[in-house]
Design a protein around this nucleic acid. Sequence first.
DNA 1: CGTCTTTGACCTGCGC
DNA 2: GCGCAGGTCAAAGACG
Length: 228
Amino acid sequence: MLNQSAALFEEQDHVIIASQLAGFIPNFQTNFNSTSPLEFPINMHQPCKSLAANLMSTPLPSLEAADQPLPTKQKDEFIAHFAGSQFLSLQRSPANYWAWGDLMSDCMSMKVGDHVGVSPLKMKKIYKGRRKVREPRFCFKTMSDIDVLDDGYKWRKYGQKVVKNTQHPRSYYRCTQDNCRVKKRVERFADDPRMVITTYEGRHIHSPSHDNDDESRSSIYQLNHFFS
DNA sequence: CGTCTTTGACCTGCGC
DNA sequence: GCGCAGGTCAAAGACG
């Protein structure tokens, strides 16, 4: 049984859904005011997605406003929706919109206690350099002895790399379906090798193979279809 | 024999 | 411009 706790984010659609983010980001500073992780069951993802999409659908503020917090009203709506739940507050700016993926990537290799955050200067550099559209990405972390989780799709490994400051190599996979450009990266969490971090990039243009009906109902299958 | 994995080389982007 | 690190390629080997 997969551990369903996960941290998910998708940049292209402005959807940011976080669960157990504190596990990825030891200290919330600069752009994140978090006191405790946000947690919700897997079947709450769709309402969360709608809410977050609505929240994030207003035009991006000007670059000069990059360091300004999310308008209080929007933040309050988000907080209200999760009243009674542990809550992660989000601040939105054009810079950290682009920085989400990078920040998350940075966090993968960080040690507990490291500072996490993006300086205003770095944020503006990231924003300036990322005007091209990037494939949507999301990642999640699971407790598993198996590196490559069966997600219903067929993958071919095309590379492996030792990442700096980590003991475990990162593996690169591509979907084997013709014309499908989806990729995924699989690596062990540096601070806790029992955890597997899987990062998906792109969207499948086909349905998963249904070799195993039980698998098609699994949580990981639902995770993939959340973004399809 | 076809498919998949491994792995060193190469490419690219970024920081200094 | 240079060096480093991450990402990708592709030839060779393993496996069924």
